[in-house]
Amino acid sequence: MATTELHPAVQRAVDAANAGVTDDFLDSFTAEGAVDDWGRVFAGREAIRGWSDKEFIGKDVNLDVTAVRRSGDTETVSATVGGNGFNGPSDFAFTVAGDRISLMRITG
């Protein structure tokens, strides 16, 4: 289902990333949450922090959301990524568990 509104947990993660607030970004995840960055999986708060410090928020990431699609408990966000790392279009598939993210998978 296409929509322009993000799930509150996903919105918190995107807002935190754009504001450069790592702790708020991490708080968007479940305790067992993970990031899958093209097959490299970072599970748990400290692993996600390490990844983010080197490749996401630490690179001054900016996500300009261009589309949102939902299927079951997964919300796929298309965004134009800016910052001091990867720049360009990308997709992020967020699996939501209650009011938190259990998995953020970078898919495209």
Rank of each mutant, 00 (worst) to 15 (best):
A67P: 10
A17M: 13
A34E: 15
R100H: 10
D64E: 14
P89L: 11
S102M: 03
F42C: 00
V65A: 09
A2N: 14
T107L: 03
D64S: 13
G33Y: 11
D37I: 05
V35S: 10
D99K: 06
E46L: 08
V41G: 00
G33Q: 11
R40I: 00
A13L: 01
V61H: 03
I106N: 15
G50I: 02
R45V: 06
G33A: 11
T107K: 02
D73T: 14
I106A: 14
I101D: 09
I101Q: 06
I101P: 08
T22G: 00
D91N: 12
E75W: 07
E75G: 07
R12D: 12
N87G: 00
F42I: 00
T4L: 08
R12L: 13
D27L: 00
N18Q: 09
W38C: 10
I101Y: 07
D60G: 10
A2E: 15
G82A: 10
L26Y: 04
F25D: 01
F94M: 06
I48T: 06
G82P: 03
E46Y: 08
G88C: 06
P89V: 12
G88L: 07
L26Q: 04
D73F: 07
A19T: 04
T66Y: 13
F56W: 15
V96L: 02
A34T: 08
H7N: 15
L26P: 08
N84Q: 14
W51R: 00
D15P: 03
G88M: 05
F94D: 06
T74Y: 05
D73A: 15
T107F: 05
V10K: 07
F86I: 03
D53W: 02
F25H: 02
K54L: 13
V96I: 14
G58L: 04
F92Q: 12
V81W: 12
G58K: 04
S102E: 15
V96Y: 02
D37V: 04
T3M: 07
V14A: 09
A9H: 01
G88Y: 07
T80F: 12
S102R: 08
Q11D: 13
A31T: 15
Q11S: 13
K54T: 11
D37E: 04
F92P: 13
H7S: 11
W51K: 00
I57F: 05
R69F: 15
A13E: 09
T107A: 11
G20F: 11
D36V: 03
T107N: 02
E75K: 06
G50Q: 06
F29G: 07
F42M: 01
A43M: 04
T74M: 07
P8F: 12
A43F: 03
G58Y: 04
D64A: 14
G85A: 12
G85I: 12
R49F: 05
I101V: 13
A9C: 01
I48P: 07
F56L: 15
G98R: 08
A47W: 02
V21M: 02
K54V: 08
N87R: 12
T66S: 15
W51L: 01
K54D: 13
A43V: 14
A16D: 06
E46R: 06
E46D: 15
A19E: 11
S52P: 10
L63D: 06
L26E: 04
A47L: 03
R100F: 00
D91T: 11
T66P: 14
E5C: 01
T74W: 05
F42G: 00
L6Q: 09
T107W: 03
D23N: 12
F42R: 01
R45Y: 05
R49T: 05
T4H: 10
A97V: 02
T74C: 07
D23C: 07
I48W: 05
V14T: 12
